[in-house]
Design a protein around this nucleic acid. Structure first.
Lengths: 205, 205
DNA sequence: AAATAGTTTAACCAGATGGTTGAAATATTG
DNA sequence: CAATATTTCAACCATCTGGTTAAACTATTT
């Protein structure tokens, strides 16, 4: 009964994803995960030998969902005025469905810098050199001001991610209910493209 | 012996700050804090009745150091082209001395949204309405494009904080050693003002 | 200097936590 | 369908964790 098997293992994995994301590694309890998955605690150890291994499985899966996407779009051949809205769109769609995943990744990335490093090496995920080249090309072609591609990259990603990372701050400081916050995010999609392209003085070719 | 008393209590508080910032609430151990402070574990309970109360003391102190500063500068009467470099400067100075504090605040803010809300109410810290007014004024005066002040605010803060929040990501993706990372931060101070003022098409008055 | 109050410590405790075990239930195979 | 392998479970265990206690030590007051 491979179906049932998969079901159980998946159930555990999904439950673990939720619990780890909510509480981080240290805050999560194995019993809590078992309850969430509606199974006995020893099943966790049967399928994933330890808390750490279960956590790693979850963490890696999220990393895989998170980084390749960003770098794929970033490395594409589109000009910036096309690429940026695409990137924003891709990320907002993903993040609105997984609003806690950024916090989780960043938190655990900082707690396990070495594992993150290993992950990036193993999966052969490189900083998109294409992106830097493209920026230099577009600068030469007179589309935009001279900027350090790394500074630009971090700025773009920061602008996209920050409202998700600081969700509680945004809501609290502006006094937003959930639906107001969602509206804020939706508005931001429009806002960001213009903001970024202006910032580098981008001229359409 | 009030000096010694204060010394012990302070020692505990400082040790707790370090340990909580490194490990978060759930990841921190009372014994670890006691060791870090070079005192017996029961002293922790003598001065601060429980882990939670000790944590709250630390968390609140960091919130007090963090938010009023930002809002003070934001609420000042300077025009944006003066205010933004000032804000960046104030924050970079603070953050470079306390590089883990942002992660800590954001993480625990998300874990205890209610406590954060209570804090903002108790300390009477409001979203700087001045800031919104100022933006609207400067728009009317033709200094800059039409933008939503809230989007702008979140963008500015995000641009400043993100490299600290995602420290490990920045270092790993760009392959930076500590000193390269510090250089990156230093460069960013210069980069950001121009980036932001361009983004809103700011014209000096 | 005796009495009082405040500070520090070692030893201890109950409950929680990650993890184990061995047997029962279920599915797979010959 | 009997033998074998896999899956599930309740009960259990060693360790760790936050927290307590009672006694020793130190400082302050009278």
């Amino acid at each position: 009964m491979t179906d049932k098997e998969k079901a159980t293992e998946e159930q555990i994995f999904d439950a673990a994803s939720r619990i780890f994301q909510e509480n981080g590694f240290a805050g999560a309890r194995m019993q809590q995960i078992a309850d969430e998955a509606n199974i006995n605690k020893s099943m966790l150890h049967y399928y994933y030998r330890s808390k750490e291994k279960l956590f790693r499985a979850v963490f890696q899966k999220q990393l895989v969902r998170f980084f390749p996407t960003i770098f794929e779009v970033l490395g594409s051949e589109l000009n910036l005025d096309k690429k940026i809205p695409l990137l924003i769109d891709a990320y907002y769609n993903f993040l609105q469905d997984n609003p806690t995943v950024v916090q989780f990744i960043i938190q655990e990335m900082n707690n396990n810098p070495d594992e993150f490093r290993r992950f990036m090496e193993e999966k052969n995920i490189h900083p998109p050199q294409n992106f830097a080249n493209q920026i230099h090309r577009e600068i030469k072609e007179g589309h935009m001001d001279q900027v350090d591609p790394r500074q630009l990259l971090i700025s773009i990603i920061g602008l996209i991610l920050f409202p998700f990372i600081a969700q509680v701050m945004v809501k609290t400081v502006f006094g937003l209910e959930e639906k107001d916050y969602l509206k804020f995010l939706k508005d931001r999609k429009q806002f960001l493209t213009e903001f970024i392209l202006n910032a580098i003085n981008y001229k359409k070719s």
